[in-house]
């Protein structure tokens, strides 16, 4: 690692980071502070008048059964997405990397293209595919499931679309990680065992840890914050059964104009994310540090 040897104090590094600091400050840090500030207020519909209510919004939150429902949904949504994306990503990458498979390019294309589709297009297509009477899904399954209009299936329907859409990107990252594993390791492993599967678990998986680590983090943070699908496909319905925290905040904060309440939920959400990331990074640093 090379560090420049500079005079004791110099303006130079600050110049390099100045634009970044300004933009981040204005569009990330300041809004976050403002959100925290608003969380202690109750406002009128357009935030021109506000009144200090201390922890009032936070106590409302704890007694709001919809909030807890939504938190549960978000956890389910986030974790299923991460597990499925990672699991399937690993599987797909292994397949795409193996010599046995003939349709490699087709496979890569079909797994990755959903990532490129605009979310509005993806949502609309799936809305139709999920149509109980005429959608391809029910017709293929030969069973009439009320996908987007039932308490049982709405969240699952969203998870399916979300995984379909984001799988390609993780899959690509993992594949890249795999192809980065030096051939020598493979040759050494080949001397130990003939079994592809065994080799995978002994060699590939452990060496992918750093990549997986990053992919997992990106996956978790982005899935917990995603709400486009909910907004377009179900609006959280029926009855909050497919609602996630981010969209609930949007509903309460912007649609119902309870800006203080929405800010309180955002603040809690932010704290949880920060805590999670810190723990994750600390934990990961210890476990993954073997390459360097």
């Amino acid at each position: 690692m090379s560090r420049g040897s500079l005079a004791k104090w110099s303006v130079k590094p600050y110049l390099y980071i100045l634009p970044m600091v300004v933009i981040f400050g204005v569009f990330s840090v300041y809004p976050m502070l403002r959100t925290v500030f608003l969380s202690f207020m109750e406002t009128n519909a357009i935030a021109t008048q506000m009144q200090f209510v201390g922890l009032g919004n936070y106590s409302d939150m704890t007694s709001d059964r919809h909030f807890w429902r939504v938190v549960g949904n978000t956890a389910i949504y986030g974790f299923s997405q991460v597990i499925l994306t990672l699991g399937l990503g690993l599987l797909f990458a292994a397949v795409a990397n193996s010599n046995m498979v003939k349709f490699r390019t087709l496979f890569r294309l079909s797994a990755f293209y959903p990532y490129v589709l605009p979310i509005a297009v993806a949502a609309m297509v799936w809305i139709y595919l999920y149509n109980p009477s005429r959608g391809a899904i029910n017709l293929l399954l030969d069973h009439r499931i009320q996908w987007l209009n039932s308490y049982e299936y709405a969240l699952i329907a969203l998870i399916i679309v979300s995984v379909w859409k984001s799988l390609g990107f993780s899959f690509l990252l993992i594949l890249a990680g795999m192809q980065n594993i030096s051939k020598e390791y493979y040759e050494a492993a080949a001397l130990e065992t003939n079994n592809h599967v065994k080799r995978y678990f002994m060699l590939t998986l452990p060496m992918l840890m750093p990549t997986l680590f990053v992919v997992c983090l990106l996956c978790v943070t982005s899935s917990f914050q995603s709400m486009d699908l909910v907004a377009i496909m179900t609006q959280g319905g029926p009855g909050h059964s497919s609602n996630v925290l981010m969209y609930y905040i949007y509903q309460e904060g912007i649609i119902n104009r309870r800006l203080g309440y929405g800010s309180a939920m955002s603040t809690i959400f932010l704290l949880v994310l920060v805590a999670f990331t810190i723990v994750y990074l600390k934990f990961g640093e210890r476990r993954v540090e073997y390459e360097r």
Partner: peptide, 10 residues
């Protein structure tokens, strides 16, 4: 950690 979407209103 915080995407622009989360900070919509501010």
């Amino acid at each position: 950690l915080v995407s622009p979407e989360s900070l919509l209103l501010p």
